[in-house]
Amino acid sequence: MDNSIQQNLIVPEDLSNVDLKTRIWTESKMVWKIAFPAMVARVTSFGMIVVTQAFIGHIDKLELAAYALLQSFIVRFINGIVIGMSSATETLCGQAFGARHDHMMGIYLQRSWIVDGVAATILLPLVIFAAPIFRLVLGQDEDVAIAAGNMSLWFIPYVYYLVFSFTIQMYLQAQLKNKVVGWFSAISFVLHILLSWIFVKKLELGTAGAMGALTISTWSTVIGLLVYIFGGWCPNTWKGFTKAAFADILPVVKLSISSGFMICLEIWYNSVIVLAAGYMKNSTTAISAFSLCHNILSWEFMLSFGFLGAACVRVANELGRGNPKAAKFSVEIILSTSIIIGVLFWCSARSHRQAFLSYFTLR
């Protein structure tokens, strides 16, 4: 474990002789130190999906509906499975870091690549055979289903990007190196906007340009993080590739699968609304409209996922150190902070709603 990180890591149990206010302040700083970069990473990475949808919307209405159906139903399903399975990496690496078993973190990362990569490959036919799935199995509009099938192959690199992106994020976040994740994600997001503008607006490459920009931008994040890991910036946790990654892989599989289905159902069940829109009379417009609203809400939801990541890291670190009281205290602080944020946003939304209604009433 990095000595500089370990020296700055003060757990609430070490502050048992000080007042409660100091303990709360210390724990809150530790939580937000993890949460803010995680929020930036989640918001910017999902933002690439939203930006791509925005540029495709300027190309063609049918292409927009096809993208919306693919992204909201199939890609979101795979995304939910992969992010859920990657949470196993977060748990295992967080406990290893807390217990100072630094060498195991690199092994857990490699095991997650194997398990998640196999799972993504098993799910890949959903992307490859999107057209017959939408047309024959789900009974979607013929034109939209064919357009989705033509576009679906562009999502194959994105599926494998999810495997590496999520697992690497969990690995670095567990050892409190999440700032670098936030920076790489933010830079890739800016790059994606620039490339999308060049490919779609200037070069007029159409859907191929928008999807090509998505592929380049997303994989630039993965390549940058891999260079960071392999380049020696994680000397205590990355010791190179090892055969040990293939040993004791069954427990990782069990933990990953259970986590995968749990998170997937939470993320995916709202996508059924987009699928149902395909049965409406004007399905092309309905699918696009529902998907746009859904993606904007999901974009906001990424803030909650970032905060959730901080909670998982703090609890895993403390349990790895054998400090259940510190883990409990951290959960109490995180829950209290979440409730306060939720109430503030609720009050803000309510006041803005009243102002909005008053404005239109006066008009």
Rank of each mutant, 00 (worst) to 15 (best):
residue 345 F to H: 03
residue 227 V to L: 15
residue 341 I to A: 04
residue 160 Y to I: 07
residue 119 A to N: 07
residue 95 Q to C: 04
residue 242 T to P: 14
residue 9 L to W: 14
residue 119 A to H: 08
residue 96 A to R: 07
residue 356 F to D: 08
residue 261 F to H: 04
residue 55 F to C: 10
residue 49 I to T: 14
residue 231 G to L: 02
residue 287 I to E: 00
residue 62 L to A: 09
residue 216 I to K: 04
residue 60 D to M: 06
residue 6 Q to D: 10
residue 132 P to V: 04
residue 63 E to P: 01
residue 2 D to H: 11
residue 130 A to M: 01
residue 248 D to M: 09
residue 288 S to F: 09
residue 36 F to L: 12
residue 205 L to G: 12
residue 226 L to D: 01
residue 256 S to W: 04
residue 44 T to A: 15
residue 231 G to I: 09
residue 167 T to W: 01
residue 87 S to R: 03
residue 49 I to R: 10
residue 49 I to N: 15
residue 278 G to P: 09
residue 317 N to C: 11
residue 33 K to L: 12
residue 359 Y to S: 11
residue 311 A to T: 12
residue 210 A to G: 03
residue 95 Q to W: 06
residue 110 Q to E: 06
residue 222 V to P: 03
residue 57 G to Q: 03
residue 302 M to F: 04
residue 328 K to P: 02
residue 323 N to M: 07
residue 134 F to S: 00
residue 281 K to A: 11
residue 34 I to F: 10
residue 104 M to L: 14
residue 1 M to E: 02
residue 222 V to I: 14
residue 183 W to T: 11
residue 320 G to L: 01
residue 56 I to G: 00
residue 312 C to I: 15
residue 209 G to S: 10
residue 114 I to S: 01
residue 226 L to I: 13
residue 116 D to L: 15
residue 91 T to S: 08
residue 65 A to D: 04
residue 279 Y to H: 11
residue 192 H to V: 07
residue 316 A to H: 03
residue 33 K to N: 14
residue 312 C to D: 10
residue 291 S to V: 03
residue 128 I to D: 02
residue 299 W to D: 00
residue 97 F to V: 14
residue 175 Q to I: 09
residue 291 S to D: 01
residue 114 I to E: 00
residue 136 L to Q: 05
residue 301 F to W: 06
residue 135 R to M: 04
residue 269 Y to Q: 00
residue 338 S to D: 13
residue 186 A to Q: 03
residue 16 S to C: 05
residue 39 M to V: 13
residue 12 P to Q: 09
residue 347 C to W: 03
residue 42 R to L: 09
residue 311 A to V: 11
residue 44 T to D: 06
residue 187 I to S: 08
residue 351 S to Q: 05
residue 314 R to I: 10
residue 183 W to Q: 12
residue 281 K to S: 13
residue 312 C to T: 13
residue 181 V to G: 00
residue 119 A to K: 14
residue 33 K to D: 09
residue 334 I to P: 11
residue 36 F to C: 07
residue 95 Q to T: 15
residue 118 V to I: 06
residue 142 E to S: 06
residue 331 V to M: 14
residue 360 F to T: 14
residue 170 M to E: 07
residue 46 F to K: 14
residue 24 I to P: 03
